[in-house]
Every structure is written in structure tokens, then in C-alpha cells.
Design a protein around this nucleic acid. Structure first.
Length: 521
DNA sequence: GGACGGTGAAACTTCAGGTTGCCTC
DNA sequence: GAAGTTTCACCGTCC
């Protein structure tokens, strides 16, 4: 159903006008844009036009959501004060949740967001404004491309709050008349795209094939073919011969990687019957790869790298670059034009620690390789105790993205630790475990001992270390008063307890949580 | 006359997102 | 391809 709505033209920016009108009529809006920058800029521009809303408490809690606020946090906090917010993957989860909750409660009136809010979340609004129907894409269609109709529907579907309002408004913004006709035809009246099975994507197929075998869901070649012939993929693909040849290619790969074993055929000439009855079984290594749920190609690459470096010392940078060379860590942080020299310079420092072969400068994938170096350098700086503000300034990576990348790297490092156990690479196992521990907390090696204490993270450990408390022994002999001055009373009490020193809080004339220092020997 | 600030055009730069393992306070 | 950012020239104002 269409309806004519008049929006007062208070500015020459239609998105701002719609936002202001939505607030004016006492409703809420989600505005979808195509970049994180745009989401931030538009929400800021809208907030500047709002005079009558002031939410200082909420604004403060946005800053409090993180221990050391970055430029991004300060910007968001200022915008939120006016009942507006931006929302994208660069936010940390606490801030994201806060914004989502306050929007649901009706406190925040307008959110400018990337498509994050279109999928999965229960975040309806009276108005869903789709400002950008084009998005930059790389690969076969390089440049700005129209977003899929399905995605438009996801965003438009956020309009209207069932049970609370009778209807909602989904608004697209056209720049010209012909633009308007195009939008009407393609998106409003158009059909969504067909859905295609993703099973044929090689990493997906490799992973599923191995896990089917490892979990004993299939035991023979015939089982495999029968299983895949019943999938949606086969239904869509129709050509079972071609499908079988793809599966064969994958099976060969898994055999080459020593993740599965297939029983030998007796003769050079193999009958169809004989082929179908060939037994398929995962090796011990293959079983673990399947459990770890990593792409077999990645697993094999990591294993090869670890084997190749079995005899040498693996530095933190070589370990980080090893995991940063996998598909799982993509997309890499991209090197920007003005930082090429700086990254090259820093790379020179670590060049001899890289396990992979460095491509020649004129080769196609050189820039891709350098992006993987930049990604590794970001992680390296993290484990050298650089803060989020520094990482944002230096690598243009936002707090939420930092967390996402580190989580993935940690998962792969865990996989490396597990795989190195199975293939018996003790030394490699030790080096990787150490780097993984550093990555988890973002600390230099010297702090690892102190991190074993509960309640001690990178900040507290650094404080303790710089004040002469360098390991658990120092922490044990350290005077409680000194410790309490450094990192607080309550936490010092907990630390001493963990170290087996009995502490009894003073019962009389004390404030809550005060401790009897005389109890320490 | 020089420092400073505001303005607007031109040149330049950059571009969405999320699932998997396992554990531990 | 286009939005957002940076750079730079230009102009007016002030001391």
C-alpha cells in the first residue's frame, strides 16, 4: 500500500529531513547507509540539528562501556546525547547492546547503520529509510553495484512494529526522476533473487565432506554420493556426473592431506560396484581437523608451516603471520596509499621471520601479501601492549573489529596448538601456546606469569610489573599495602588469597571490604 | 603587512558483515 | 561511483 507523506524540507539533505520529521511526530527511524563512515557522519549531522533532546546519562554510559574510550567512542557518546546513534560492526558489543536496548525502549530515536541491523536482530522501527541502494564491491563486478532485492527487503522489512503500530513506512531515497523509476521497478515491484546452494563453494564442501566422514555419517564412497545426491545442491545442479567429479577432486585432496584414508582397489581397472564399495575413514589428524571445524585447506597449510619450522625458534611475529595468511583472517586490513612506506619500513624489521615466501613486488598478489603483513603488524602491536586508541589511529581498525579479528586469530592459534600435539611438534606447540596467551590478553611475554592470577589483566599486570612485582613469587612476598595502592584493595585481597595467603577482613571500625593487613606474614 | 579564520572548490581516498573451538574467572 | 576527507587558494578581518 502506498501513501503520500509530506516531509518538511528543513535542510537540503533528505535523510536529515526524514529523521527530524520522524522525531517530530514522536516515532523512530532506522537509516541504512553503505559505509561505516557514512553511518557516523549522517548520525552526527542529524544530532547537530536536534535542540530539544538531552541524554547526558546515556551519553556517559556509552563512554563507560569501555575501559579506555577511543575517538569513535567519544563521537558516539556525543551523538547519543541527542537521541541519535550510529551502529556498525566497529562498535564493541557492550555499546551495540546499549544502543539496541535504548532504541527498543524508545529512548534513542534514530539510528544510522550499515546492514548490521537488517539481519537477525529484532529491531523494528516506524520508518526504515534505505538511503543507499548501491554498494562498493570488489571482484568480478568492481565498482558500485546495486544491492540485491533480497537485501532491500530485509531492510524495508524493519519498518512497522507488529503489535504496537498498524503500519510502518519503508522509504528509499532517489537522487533523480529516473533513479526513482528504477528503484520502483527493481526494488518495490521487483522479484527477489533466487536462492542458490552454497555447498558447491569449495571451502564449504571440503569442510562438510571431512566432517561427514569423521563423524562416521558416511562410511563408503557410495554413502557419500547418495548423501550429496539428496541435497538441495544436487537438486539445483542436476548434473550428477559433474557433481561427482567435484566430490572426487575434494576426496583426493583430503587423502593427499592425510586427513582421510580410502581403501585401495585391487586392480587398475575398477568396476562401478568396486568403486562404490570403497571404504572411507578419517585419520586421527582428520578427525581433529573436523572437530576444530576449520577448512581442511587451512589446516593443511598450518600443518605444513609448523612442520617446516619444527627445528627453529618461532617468533611471535612468525606465528601471527602464519595465521594471518589463512582465508579465515580475510578480509585483511588494507594498506592505505599514505601508509605504504611506513608499513614497508616496519616489514623490513620482520622480513626474515616470515614463514611464507615473499612474492616479488611486481606480482599480482604482492599488495595482498602486504595487507596480510599489515594485519599481522596490528596483532603484533596489540601483544606489545598498544591500546585501542593507538590501533585505531595507526591501523584504522575500530574496537569492534579489533575484537573480531583477535577472536578469529585465537581460534586458529588454538587449532595450531591442537594439531601440533597430534603431529608431535613439542617445540612449535610451546611457541604457539605462548603467542596465543599473549594475544588473548594483549601483553608482552614478561607479563604472562602475572596473568595467571584471576582478576589481573593487561593493565593491572603492567602496573604490578613496573613496580617490581614481576612474577607470582614477587606477588607473594609483596606488602599488601603496596599492592592495594597499586591496583586497589579488593583485588589485592583476592590475589593474596589465590597465592595461598590467608586474609581476614577487619570486623570492627572498618569500611566495607577493608582488610586486616596484620594478617600477612 | 602579517597572522588568522572562514569558505568553497578541487583533489584525493576509501568503501558491509559474521559462523565455526574451548575454557575460565 | 560516490560520499567523505583533506588540501589549497582566496578573501576578509583584526591587530
Amino acid at each position: 500500500m502506498s501513501k503520500t507523506v509530506h516531509i518538511p524540507l528543513k535542510t537540503n539533505n533528505q535523510s536529515i529531513n526524514i529523521a527530524l520529521d520522524t522525531i517530530q511526530i514522536g516515532k523512530q527511524a532506522l537509516i541504512f547507509v553503505n559505509t561505516k563512515r557514512s553511518a557516523e557522519k549522517l548520525s552526527e549531522d542529524i544530532s547537530k540539528k536536534i535542540k530539544h533532546i538531552s541524554l547526558p546519562t546515556l551519553s556517559a554510559s556509552i563512554l563507560k562501556a569501555v575501559s579506555s574510550p577511543t575517538k569513535q567512542c567519544r563521537r558516539l557518546s556525543k551523538i547519543v546525547e541527542k537521541g541519535v546513534a550510529f551502529h556498525h560492526a566497529g562498535l564493541v558489543s557492550k555499546q551495540r547492546e546499549l544502543i539496541e536496548d535504548k532504541f527498543r525502549e524508545g529512548v534513542i530515536k534514530v539510528i544510522c547503520c550499515t546492514p548490521t541491523l537488517a539481519f537477525g536482530l529484532d529491531m523494528p522501527a516506524f520508518r526504515a529509510v534505505i538511503r543507499d541502494l548501491k554498494r562498493f564491491s570488489v571482484g568480478t563486478s568492481w565498482g558500485m553495484t546495486d544491492i540485491p532485492v533480497l537485501e532491500y527487503m530485509q531492510m524495508a522489512g524493519r519498518a512497522g512494529r507488529p503489535g504496537k503500530e498498524d503500519y510502518g513506512e519503508a522509504i528509499c531515497i532517489a537522487q533523480t526522476e529516473s533513479d526513482k523509476d528504477f528503484i520502483e521497478q527493481k526494488y518495490i515491484e521487483g522479484e527477489p533473487e533466487c536462492i542458490y546452494s552454497k555447498l558447491a563453494v569449495e571451502p564449504v564442501l571440503r569442510t562438510y565432506l571431512l566432517s561427514l566422514i569423521a563423524s562416521h555419517f558416511v562410511r563408503t564412497y557410495d554413502d557419500i554420493i547418495t548423501f550429496f545426491s539428496k541435497t538441495f545442491w544436487a537438486y539445483q545442479f542436476e548434473d550428477m556426473n559433474r557433481l561427482e567429479s567435484i566430490i572426487n577432486k575434494m576426496l583426493k585432496l583430503l587423502v593427499d592431506f592425510e586427513f582421510i584414508e580410502m581403501s585401495e582397489t585391487t586392480d587398475d581397472f575398477v568396476s562401478a560396484q568396486e568403486m562404490a564399495e570403497r571404504k572411507v575413514k578419517a585419520t586421527k589428524l582428520g578427525e581433529r581437523v573436523a572437530q576444530l571445524y576449520i577448512d581442511p585447506l587451512t589446516a593443511n597449510k598450518l600443518i605444513e608451516d609448523m612442520k617446516a619450522s619444527a627445528e627453529q625458534d618461532l617468533t611471535a611475529f612468525s606465528v601471527l603471520h602464519m595465521v594471518c595468511s589463512t582465508l579465515e583472517l580475510r578480509p585483511y586490513l588494507r594498506i592505505k596509499a599514505k601508509e605504504v612506506d611506513k608499513i614497508e619500513e616496519r616489514y623490513a624489521e620482520f622480513a626474515d621471520e616470515i614463514l611464507a615466501d615473499e612474492p616479488e613486488m611486481f606480482e599480482d598478489h604482492y599488495s595482498d601479501f602486504m595487507d596480510s603483513i599489515k594485519t599481522s603488524l596490528f596483532m603484533y602491536d596489540w601483544i606489545e601492549e598498544k591500546g585501542e586508541e593507538y590501533l585505531l589511529e595507526t591501523f584504522d581498525i575500530r574496537p569492534g573489529e579489533i575484537k573480531a579479528k583477535l577472536d578469529r586469530a585465537d581460534w586458529l592459534l588454538y587449532a595450531c596448538v591442537e594439531l601440533s600435539k597430534i603431529i608431535g611438534l613439542t617445540k612449535v606447540n610451546k611457541d604457539i601456546t605462548k603467542t596465543r596467551m599473549r594475544l588473548k590478553s594483549g601483553v608482552k611475554e614478561e607479563l604472562l606469569s602475572l596473568l595467571r592470577l584471576k582478576g589481573v589483566g593487561r593493565i593491572r599486570a603492567r602496573k604490578m610489573f613496573n613496580n617490581g612485582i614481576k612474577d607470582l613469587k614477587d606477588a607473594k612476598t609483596c606488602d599488601l599495602t603496596k599492592l592495594a595502592q597499586l591496583i586497589g584493595r579488593a583485588i589485592s585481597y583476592k590475589i593474596k588469597e589465590q597465592l595461598g595467603q590467608k586474609v581476614t577482613p577487619i570486623k570492627e571500625n572498618k569500611r566495607k571490604g577493608q582488610i586486616n593487613l596484620n594478617d600477612f606474614r
